[in-house]
Simulated assay, not measured.
Amino acid sequence: MAGLLFVISGPSGVGKSTLRKEVMNRCSGLKYSVSCTTRPPRPGEVEGVDYYFVTPEAFEEMKERGEFIEWAKVHGNYYGTPRRPIEEWWREGFDVILEIDVQGALQVKKSCPEGIFIFIAPPSLRALEERLRKRNTDPEDEILLRMTNANLEMAHIKDYNYLVVNDDFEEAVQRLCAIIIAERCRIRER
């Protein structure tokens, strides 16, 4: 049986990475697709674990060869999800989890409408801004851009199958695990 596709997205700073990592610790049989980006690595990020860091020229070449299942320009940098590993994992029967921005999720939904789309939302936009500031990774203009984009991204909640509010971390993890378990148990037409 081919694997499932779980797509987790939401505004920058909402906690997608932290949630995804914990869900992968608790739910077996998931493969995480590492995205490519043209942005520089943040402190502590590891090549091939957090992202594949590529030049804008290399990204353009990959895009032209159709190597991405989705790609988008977000906050001035390109991000894209390589197609090949996902297709290989599906053939092997693994479920794949993507952690991508809202633009990318909407692209994936067009090409993989059978995917399970999960929107991670902050408890409030004020709480999201506080999280972005506490990260200490972005200058003020970048934070303002991320908050502007968050307002636009929140309007797309209706395009998702599930909504998980990341107010209480443990509760959010449990809800994500419950979604994965429920989707794995669902009877699907073959």
Rank of each mutant, 00 (worst) to 15 (best):
L176E: 08
R135V: 06
I157H: 07
F68N: 11
M154G: 01
I181H: 12
V14N: 00
P123F: 06
E170C: 08
M62P: 02
V173G: 01
E47L: 07
V49C: 06
S33C: 14
S35G: 13
C27W: 07
Y32E: 15
P40H: 09
A182Q: 13
G115F: 09
R146E: 09
I143P: 05
E183Q: 13
E189P: 01
D95C: 09
P11W: 06
D159N: 12
I180H: 02
P82W: 07
F94I: 03
P113Y: 09
E129I: 00
K158L: 13
W90H: 13
E142V: 14
E183W: 05
V173E: 02
K73Y: 10
V74T: 10
E183F: 02
P123L: 05
A127Q: 02
I179L: 10
E64S: 12
A2G: 07
M1P: 09
E130A: 08
S28A: 14
G93W: 11
I120S: 08
G115R: 10
W71T: 14
E130Q: 10
Q103W: 14
Y51H: 15
E88C: 08
I179E: 10
E140M: 06
L132F: 00
I118F: 03
R146N: 05
C27T: 15
R135Q: 13
S12A: 13
P139S: 13
G48Y: 10
T18F: 08
N77Y: 09
S12E: 08
A121Y: 00
G76R: 04
E183H: 10
E61Y: 12
C177F: 02
A178M: 02
T148N: 14
R83N: 07
L98G: 03
H156C: 11
A105D: 07
E189T: 13
R39W: 08
G29H: 08
W90Q: 11
M147H: 01
N149V: 13
Q103G: 13
W90K: 12
R26P: 00
T37A: 05
E92H: 11
Y78K: 04
L132Q: 01
G29W: 07
R91Y: 09
K158W: 11
V23S: 06
S124F: 00
H156L: 06
P113L: 04
D159L: 04
E60P: 00
L163G: 10
Y52D: 03
V46G: 01
R84G: 06
T148I: 11
V54P: 01
I180W: 03
M154H: 04
V74H: 07
K109N: 05
K16Y: 07
I179C: 06
S28N: 14
G104I: 10
V49D: 01
A121C: 00
G76S: 05
D167T: 02
A155W: 11
V54H: 03
D101P: 02
I8M: 12
A2N: 14
D168Y: 12
H75W: 11
L145R: 15
D95F: 05
V49F: 12
N166F: 00
T137L: 15
F117V: 05
E183D: 07
R190E: 14
S28Q: 14
N149L: 15
D167A: 12
V54G: 01
P139W: 11
T37S: 08
E61P: 01
P43L: 02
N136S: 15
T55S: 14
P85H: 01
E114N: 11
F94E: 10
L98R: 03
H75V: 06
T18N: 12
P139C: 11
D159I: 03
R26D: 01
I97T: 06
V173F: 04
D50R: 03
E99Q: 14
P40Y: 02
N149C: 08
